[in-house]
């Protein structure tokens, strides 16, 4: 996956910074070009970074429980910005408390996310998914 660009960041007003750093290093080690926007990233910042860098994937993290609100409308904004085909991943603790993951996955899929990861997902699982999805 040499040379593919990923945009990484923690969405909304979320300040959980530790997992973000771990993911950044793991993705870089796997050979990706990673643009890490850090914490408190708005949808617009993700999208603008993806436009300038011609990124293949936007990886959205949300840890504090408000992921669903923060992610709403993101796919539509991507379409508007000319990024209709960009891959959108989301993971972390994307909803409040413990909810059946199938339902959560369903809701985020309907919002246009290509991959939805359950809490505690390790970076390797994301890297495997990327390798699969970015097959030429």
């Amino acid at each position: 996956m040499q040379g593919k660009t990923l945009i990484l960041g923690v969405i909304g007003a979320d300040v959980h910074a530790v997992g973000n750093k771990i993911l950044y290093h793991a993705f870089r080690q796997a050979g990706f070009e990673v643009v890490n926007l850090g914490v408190m990233v708005s949808q617009e910042e993700f999208i603008e970074a993806a436009i300038e860098t011609a990124a293949s994937v936007i990886i959205v993290a949300s840890l504090y429980g408000h992921g669903e609100l923060d992610c709403r409308g993101m796919r539509e904004k991507c379409q508007e910005a000319g990024l209709a085909d960009i891959l959108l991943y989301v993971g972390g603790n994307i909803v409040v408390g413990k909810q059946p993951f199938e339902e959560v996955e369903q809701r985020f899929s309907e919002m246009g996310f290509d991959r939805v990861f359950p809490p505690g997902t390790l970076p390797d699982a994301v890297i495997n998914a990327l390798e699969e999805d970015l097959q030429p």
């Binding site: 040379g3 660009t5 070009e33 436009i51 300038e52 860098t53 011609a54 990124a55």
Partner: peptide
């Protein structure tokens, strides 16, 4: 200008 290096062409 436009695009990062390796980015949007």
């Amino acid at each position: 200008t436009g695009g990062t290096d390796g980015g949007n062409k």
